[in-house]
Amino acid sequence: AIERGSKVKILRKESYWYGDVGTVASIDKSGIIYPVIVRFNKVNYNGFSGSAGGLNTNNFAEHELEVV
């Protein structure tokens, strides 16, 4: 089962992080479509409006993740 702290591989082909491994930061139990927040070591794009980097978290559905 996917739980907080799990290392997961991203299976969503259109994702910037496809094939990468991230760490589960949290799981939303409220029934939303993409409840699993995954944190990565790298950012997906340069930040804007003065922020240092881009996003390094993204929401995924459990079926888009594979525990490694």
Rank of each mutant, 00 (worst) to 15 (best):
N46F: 09
A52H: 09
E66F: 08
V8S: 01
I10F: 03
L11D: 00
E66I: 08
V68L: 10
K9P: 02
N44A: 09
L65K: 01
V8E: 00
G5E: 02
W17F: 06
E64C: 05
L11W: 05
V68N: 02
W17C: 04
Y18K: 01
T57V: 09
R12K: 05
N59W: 10
K9A: 03
V36G: 00
Y18I: 03
L11H: 04
Y16A: 05
V36D: 00
S26N: 09
K29N: 11
I27H: 03
N44C: 15
I32K: 11
I37R: 12
V43T: 11
S6V: 13
F60R: 00
D20K: 13
L55D: 10
N58C: 15
I10H: 02
V38I: 04
I37Y: 09
G53A: 12
N46Q: 12
R39S: 08
F60G: 00
E64L: 02
L55E: 13
K13P: 08
D28G: 05
V38M: 01
I33G: 12
S26A: 13
F40Q: 00
D20I: 13
D28R: 06
G53Q: 12
H63Q: 06
P35F: 15
I2K: 01
E62H: 10
N56K: 06
K7C: 15
I33Q: 13
D28L: 11
G5S: 03
G22D: 01
T23N: 02
I37K: 13
V38W: 00
Y16S: 05
W17V: 01
F40V: 02
V43H: 12
I32E: 09
G54H: 07
S6M: 14
I32L: 11
G53F: 07
A52L: 10
E64F: 04
K9D: 02
I10C: 09
V24S: 00
V8D: 00
R12F: 03
T23E: 11
V8F: 02
V68H: 03
V36P: 00
N58M: 15
R39M: 13
I32R: 08
S51A: 11
A1Y: 10
G54D: 08
N41S: 13
K9Y: 04
F48A: 14
T23H: 05
L11A: 02
Y34R: 10
D20F: 14
R12T: 04
L11M: 06
E64R: 02
S6R: 06
G47I: 05
I37C: 15
E66Y: 07
N58R: 07
T57L: 07
G19A: 04
S30I: 06
E3S: 14
Y18H: 04
S15C: 11
F48H: 11
K13S: 06
A61M: 06
A61R: 03
E14Y: 07
F60W: 02
R12Y: 02
V67K: 06
E64I: 03
W17H: 05
H63N: 07
G54Y: 09
P35M: 15
N44P: 10
A25R: 05
K29T: 13
W17G: 00
V43S: 08
G19Q: 08
N59Q: 07
Y16K: 05
I32C: 14
I37Q: 11
V38D: 00
R12G: 00
V24Q: 01
E3Q: 14
S30T: 11
I33K: 13
R39T: 11
N44E: 12
K42N: 09
E14Q: 10
D28S: 09
I33N: 12
V8Y: 00
G22Y: 06
F48D: 15
N41W: 12
S30G: 09
A61L: 05
V43R: 07
N59S: 11
N41M: 12
E62M: 14
V67W: 06
A52T: 13
L55M: 12
E14M: 08
S15K: 00
I10L: 03
D28W: 05
N56P: 06
I27L: 06
E66M: 10
E62W: 14
L11P: 01
V38T: 00
V24R: 00
L65W: 03
V36S: 00
R12E: 01
V43G: 08
N46K: 05
E62A: 12
S49I: 11
T57H: 11
G54V: 08
I37W: 14
F60D: 01
S49D: 15
S49A: 11
D20Y: 13
S30Q: 06
Y34N: 11
G5A: 02
D28T: 04
H63L: 05
K13E: 06
A61S: 06
V43I: 12
H63G: 04
N46A: 06
K13Y: 08
K13N: 05
S30N: 08
S6L: 09
I37L: 14
I33H: 10
R12H: 02
S49N: 10
N58V: 10
V38S: 00
L11R: 04
V43K: 10
V38P: 00
L65R: 01
N46R: 03
D28F: 05
V43P: 15
N59D: 05
E3M: 15
A61G: 07
I33T: 10
E3I: 12
K9W: 03
Y34P: 05
N46D: 15
D20S: 11
V38Y: 00
K7W: 14
S30R: 08
L55K: 08
L55I: 14
V68F: 06
I2M: 07
F48Q: 14
K7D: 03
K29Q: 09
F48R: 03
F40E: 00
N58D: 15
I27K: 02
I37V: 14
E3A: 14
G5N: 04
V24E: 01
G54A: 09
N46C: 15
E14G: 12
Y45L: 15
H63C: 14
E14L: 08
V67H: 04
Y34L: 09
F40H: 01
R39P: 00
G19W: 05
A25K: 08
H63E: 10
